[in-house]
């Protein structure tokens, strides 16, 4: 069984935010109004942000300053705190290690958003909107699993949504392999953020395959997880700067 994993090399990441917008375009996350955005309601499943996150007084003084930037998709934790608190199993880990969200079942209690130590789960505060002609570019794909909505199709108001490692692309790639009558290979699918990464800082693949890039990189001395102490056993790996 494949165990999908993403590796982000922070030294190659140039904080361009291409991943944020690639994700938006692939997964139909809406643009919110400026007022909403100021109120922290922007929905970008993959966000780029400066570190330290909280402007601390001990950040350093000119010229002894070093700002760091990080980018944050869902960590697809092995021991996902969000999954454990969902009362209706609207979020779950699939057999390939992807933490997914069932938009048709979510009751909008926002326990998962509160429980996630990474803040990578997003809530639809308002009906997502694309003004006038902007709606034209939405990704027409719709993934449904067991009859309930999961894919990039627009989520209704009041449900939680999150990074899915672009699972609809996986389904598509598998389908393509099937149509072409061959075995599906793990390198046939990458999420949109990996594909677009300007610095080639993102890698994606099967962590259980010892020959895959991600599993090679996971052995790097620089390999680290975000908030390792959270106990969530995050899977998305970072390669530290330096």
């Amino acid at each position: 069984m494949t165990n999908w994993c993403m590796v982000i090399d922070l030294e190659k990441c140039v904080a361009c935010q291409g991943c944020s917008i690639a994700c938006r375009m692939e997964n139909n996350t809406p643009v919110v109004s400026p007022e909403e955005a100021k109120n922290g309601r922007a929905i970008r499943w993959n966000d780029v942000f400066p570190l330290p996150v909280h402007i601390a007084p001990d950040q350093g003084e000119y010229p002894n300053v070093k700002t760091h930037y990080s980018t944050r998709p869902c960590m697809h934790c092995k021991n996902a705190p969000c999954v454990k608190v969902c009362p209706v199993q609207a979020t779950f880990i699939d057999e390939e290690g992807i933490v997914r969200q069932n938009y048709d079942r979510c009751i909008g209690c926002r326990f998962c958003t509160v429980a996630c130590p990474y803040g990578v789960r997003y809530f639809n505060w308002s009906e997502p909107q694309w003004e006038e002609t902007l709606a034209e570019y939405r990704n027409p794909d719709q993934l449904s699993v067991n009859g309930s909505l999961e894919g990039p199709a627009v989520r209704p108001v009041g449900v939680v949504e999150k990074c899915t490692y672009c699972v609809h692309r996986l389904v598509k790639a598998r389908e393509l392999a099937k149509v072409e009558g061959r075995e599906f290979r793990a390198d046939e699918y990458v999420p949109a953020c990996v594909q677009t990464c300007t610095g080639k800082a993102r890698f994606f693949g099967d962590l259980d395959d010892p020959d895959s890039t991600v599993s090679q990189l996971s052995k790097s001395l620089r390999a680290t997880h975000l908030l390792e102490d959270s106990g969530a056993h995050p899977k998305t790996l970072y390669l530290a700067e330096g």
Binding site: N79, D94, H233
Partner: peptide
């Protein structure tokens, strides 16, 4: 300690609709 993996193991029937 991550024994409880919350894996969905039921047979899933995924359907991709596109244009």
């Amino acid at each position: 300690l991550g024994g409880l993996k919350n894996v969905i193991s039921a047979k899933a029937d995924s359907e991709l609709q596109t244009v």
